[in-house]
Amino acid sequence: METKIKEKIKLVKKGDQSAFEEIVAFHQSKVYQICYRLIGNTHEAEDLAQEAFIRAYVNIHSYDDNRKFSTWLYRIATNLTIDRIRKKKPDYYLDAEVQGTDGLNMYSQLPADQVQPEEEVESLEIQTYIQNEIMALPTKYRSVIALRFVDELSLAEISDILNIPIGTVKTRIHRGREALRKRLRHV
């Protein structure tokens, strides 16, 4: 698939706009999901995903064919979304660390023996609940979580996209995952 995408990109670089259509169709879900996990709102996620594709098109000549296209595209989408979050309201928690494992929240008081069957994972109610818990994390954790669990990106790819050291990516994934475990243990 990556080879096919690269062929299409060559055409786009030559000025063939219709070749871009297939690129959008192929990547739209993942880009949208990353934006949504970060911004937490379907309307804005759609808007940001569109903007990401338009920017990718306009800047297609700065894309280096030797690298993975999706990584380049996700970087555009992530940067746009983080920018939007910053503009919306100052994120006081941007640099805050996730709190330690102690401290009860309202969810930890729910009965623990309600184990949900797998198919219910997809129910809208649960999904909204999951997203709310993700939104409770500071942006820097959210971005790592979004990239890791939307397209199963490697730690190296995430480090490349967010331009942070791989060790930092690891720490953030561990902490983010641990925080969400606490918050989602009764789902």
């Binding site: 949208y32 797998e118 994972v121 997809e122 789902v187």
Partner: peptide, 21 residues
């Protein structure tokens, strides 16, 4: 932890509008 990952990876329901492209 494994359950959390399953929950985080279940995002196929998240799709842009049909006329996105």
């Amino acid at each position: 932890l494994k359950r959390t990952i399953t929950l985080l990876e279940s995002n196929s329901h998240l799709q842009p509008s049909p006329n996105f492209t």
